[in-house]
Design a binder for these strands. Structure first.
Lengths: 218, 218
DNA sequence: GCGGGAGGGGACCGTGTGGTCCAGCAGGAG
DNA sequence: CTCCTGCTGGACCACACGGTCCCCTCCCGC
């Protein structure tokens, strides 16, 4: 889980202000805290997760927490960014190479299968945080909005590739289709989570895919 | 102890249990509490709403609260039911008479317009509670799931009416279409809430409506 | 070794929270 | 009027929470 080798994507040693002190093993502690919070806030919800939960799950102490974060809000934002990075990384794996309708179906199947593992519980890692934080933390909301936009951008780029290769009609609007797919996905997650049944998620995604299909060139 | 032998329908015999004691003005107090909680939990979220918030907003006292509810969870469940009743009542107004594609468009417009008033903030009254409670309160989850099912049922019934009147093709599946519409709605709510922009909600609903349109008889 | 700073352990604190209790008050039945 | 019961106000409580503090340990360069 914790890669010692590749840490700190943010170097910038000088440029004080937000400058983090140097960090040998301390970075690993921070990573453990974020990892624990990532999991806990996903299954319990952000507000229902206490710092003590995080401390216990990460095997750290209070002082370590406050060495790396100014307060709980700071942690939440780090978790949001970590979740966004994780989801987008996963999605890039599917969507960067997307260039056919079959690829879209594979994408759908992977999401459904992943969600089926937990019977729909907890919903989408990004969506559940968005619902809880959008009207509570403006910074988090903004990060989440950008992440959704990037996710939709990956979809739109794939659809555009299908358009350029002649699979998708020229009058299709990749951006709007991507937004529609994302809404179907998120709505599907929510209904599946509520019903404890992934069927509505499948139906929602299939309907969206059917709509995309109607734009395929015969 | 005591007579109570033949008459007196009052006086709370042990029978009670789920039976609510009689309530003259006390019922009004309970209603005020639920109404205040309904509003607060919508804008702040369930977990971020404290009993003290509710007490202040409803102009009641602690003892009044515990006269009517066993604990916070009890309140939450009452709020879920109240919200479900309110949403379903509103939706019945649109959907019970639904029998044409134009009616579906009016339904869409009403939802979008209503959400635009708050610029997408807070999302769907049912959806936001579902996201927060589904993995936290099994009773609430179940109530919410049933409410979604009933909502979808209203949509499905309308679509079936369109089918019977010959507007909608016979091979259309009203239940699945209703689920797809609901997912688009909920996903649209979430994206709009996150982006602070109702455009994604409009796009999502339009895509779902377009899909329904593809099942209209020419 | 030794000095210093980052990392760590955990006691401690103020407060907000859910929840309890009890003493008055209201208003209907007799 | 007098009860009697439920409604009301609000003091009170225990505790979990976020957050602070101090002191110890480890590891580095010298």
């Amino acid at each position: 889980m914790i890669k010692q080798g590749s840490l700190s994507p943010v170097s910038t040693p000088e440029k004080a202000e937000a400058t983090r002190r140097l960090t040998p093993r301390g970075a690993a502690t921070r990573a453990r805290i974020v990892a624990a919070a990532l999991e806990l806030m996903y299954v319990k919800g952000v507000n229902a997760t206490t710092l003590d939960d995080v401390r216990a799950a990460s095997n750290t102490s209070k002082s370590q927490f406050y060495n790396h974060f100014t307060d709980k809000e700071d942690l939440v934002r780090a978790v949001v960014e970590a979740r966004a990075a994780q989801v987008l990384e996963r999605e890039r794996g599917y969507l960067l190479r997307l260039k056919s309708f079959r690829g879209l179906i594979r994408w759908r199947n992977a999401l459904v299968q992943r969600n089926a593992l937990q019977n729909g519980a907890y919903g989408c890692g990004l969506g559940s945080m968005a619902s809880e934080l959008a009207d509570q933390d403006e910074v988090a909301r903004s990060t989440l909005a950008e992440s959704f936009a990037e996710w939709e951008g990956l979809l739109a780029a794939g659809l555009r590739r299908m358009q350029e290769s002649g699979d998708l009609k020229q009058d299709a609007d990749p951006e709007k289709l991507a937004t529609g797919l994302m809404a179907a996905l998120q709505g599907g997650y929510l209904l599946a989570e509520t019903a404890h049944d992934i069927a509505p998620m499948e139906i929602a995604l299939d309907m969206a895919l059917d709509h995309v299909k109607s734009f395929l060139v015969p």
